[in-house]
Nucleic acid binder design. Structure first.
Lengths: 205, 205, 205, 205
DNA sequence: AATGAATGAGCGTTCATTCAT
DNA sequence: AATGAATGAACGCTCATTCAT
């Protein structure tokens, strides 16, 4: 019967997120949000005290719905390179799926990065959040590589921790490169890139 | 003598660059530039037809003064890992020196990245420029690694090209990580990071 | 009760119209409108998306409140020259009364024409509107003259349509001439001129 | 060998006139004049103390080069309706030729009127000039009609002076109507209209 | 919970004008 | 005679924000 508060709030968050990712934080005005939500300016101010507050909320919302890597029984699931690859790709696939569902856009655009940086620029607080997010991702890879090491799957003399970090940055770099491409990039292309990069990484070990 | 046209124009460019790097493109107003240059709004419009024109000019100016890697006789200068490291670090040192001199700021801030992304977001053209810039850097590393390979300095079965790319992204990633740190980062810290990363990279080869 | 939206909007329209007629469209700034309405810039933009939109609205407003000639039972009311003159003058009197009430100014100034031309110059659309307005006025005169003809009040061999058109332009011309006079012209003078011109026109037939 | 002062001054006047007639006075900036003359801003200020001064000069220039009706031996040249028509059309043809040569544009645009009104709006002085110009034109027609009357070419009871005035305004009105048409109007169309209007006028007398 | 009228600071930009050379 | 660098007021417009209802 009645629309619940949380629904309206979530609606605003979703719309704001989509707009921020599409055009960048600075380039989105209340006018845009009003138009896309169908609500009034006042309504938005009812839920968020300022644009900065809205930004922070959107960000938390984004992070909360982005799936965290599943580390349950990781040591048993990552026994060799092939199983690592499977686990890693599945994790990434889910993250991307969550992200594109949230934004209602199957493509991932350059503006995504712009939005992240703008957001971070607004508050020192967010810098920390993002740093921790990075650490979580690296940590996940580290645990995978240590598992591989324990299963005797890494060549002699290789440092699992350094390898994990290296792979993380290589993947990040290639992701960035893709965002710089002139054409639109659909989510699936990322998965393919992850596949290939991991494969090359181990081949060259 | 009298102040020459080019001086004023260069003054504006320098001030604009510094402000853009400090606060981000969108956050810099003509008012800011006016205050810092001591000129009038009209004077700036005398030299640049719009803010976007100013941005593009600042960008070209930045790139033109950033030293390109010196590839002269690279095969003779890069004979083993130690000589590679020396050549690489010197190149980077010079680039950073040029950059900090230009900005008049010995530290390198997070906003630097923000400015780059905002600029790129304004024109598809800049995307291409940046892509090419990346390619130049990677190319330089590739030539170094091929030289190492020719001198028999790379382990059997290693692909010089893949290694070069990997190192490039790892360095980029660590650079990014540094920019996310809460404290100000002076240029020297970057050099130290380059040193350590290259060393670890080869140790783990 | 409370002030209704339409009041504010109408207030703005009225003030804008008065200013436009006083100084010409280009010479009226938002500042002027702000000062005279007592509202803020933002408030005006709340109702009109741009100065051009305001102009178009003012124009429609002006035309809508300017009484259209009453053609009800015209054939019975216009039986001879004297009755035509009465009908015509009454129509004009009402139009002028409506106009001066709208502008809050009993005089009609040269700037009125300037405003019209500037407005027309802004959009091809308005050209059409004005053309149609002219046609309506001429049509009214034609119907009057045809009625006169049917009542046998026009000399042999006279073309009612041509006569109507001629009278229209002669009246327009004299109106224009009056606007070029150095002194202020009060609305009543127009009526006198209409009287005399129509009289002379028929005398000379 | 050397370009004479007057040449430069005349160049500026011509360019300014063309621009004013094309776009209206308010819509022409020094920038436009600079671009079209190839001179510098300073040069224009060297010859004209302000934009208003330039406008006044342009106007005098326009009027001085517009041929005045030739009244030499008019009584002998205007003996009947046909000869009147010939004389009148020739006069108008020359005026229009002079005008289009001056503007370098074979078409006559709506903006022409706008420019006139804007100019007049700038100074009360010009109002007088234009009034006198109108009077000259009407005077010319009056002398023609009196000549016709003297040659017994006007019907009994017709007032030559009133007829002349009427014809003047009818022609003016039709001219105005043409300027409101959406399509471009070449000079020749005006001549045709003059022909037809004069013919109709006498036919309906 | 939600509306939308109203604010006012600030934005990028245009413009006529001045003046040292 | 002519240049063009520099000025600064004013312009139309956008924006996040407030608040009475």
């Amino acid at each position: 019967m009645f629309k619940k508060t949380t629904d309206t709030k979530a609606d605003i968050l979703k719309v704001a997120l989509q707009l921020f990712l599409q055009k960048g934080y600075k380039n989105v005005s209340y006018q845009d949000i009003v138009k896309k939500t169908g609500l009034s300016k006042g309504a938005i101010y009812h839920y968020f005290t300022s644009k900065e507050d809205l930004l922070a909320s959107v960000f938390t919302f984004l992070l909360s719905t982005t799936g965290q890597p599943d580390t349950e029984g990781l040591e048993n699931r990552v026994k060799d390179i092939e199983s690592f690859r499977k686990v890693f790709i599945r994790t990434k696939t889910e993250q991307i799926k969550g992200f594109t569902e949230l934004t209602g856009d199957p493509s991932i655009k350059f503006n995504k990065v712009l939005f992240f940086l703008e957001a971070i620029n607004e508050s020192e607080e967010l810098k920390k959040v993002i740093r921790e997010l990075m650490q979580t991702e690296i940590e996940f890879l580290k645990r995978c590589f240590l598992s591989l090491k324990n299963h005797g799957q890494l060549p002699q003399g290789k440092d699992a921790v350094v390898l994990a970090e290296n792979l993380y940055w290589i993947l990040q770099g290639k992701e960035t490169l893709m965002l710089f491409m002139p054409d639109e990039i659909i989510a699936g292309s990322f998965i393919k890139m992850y596949h290939k990069t991991v494969k090359d990484f181990f081949k060259n070990l």
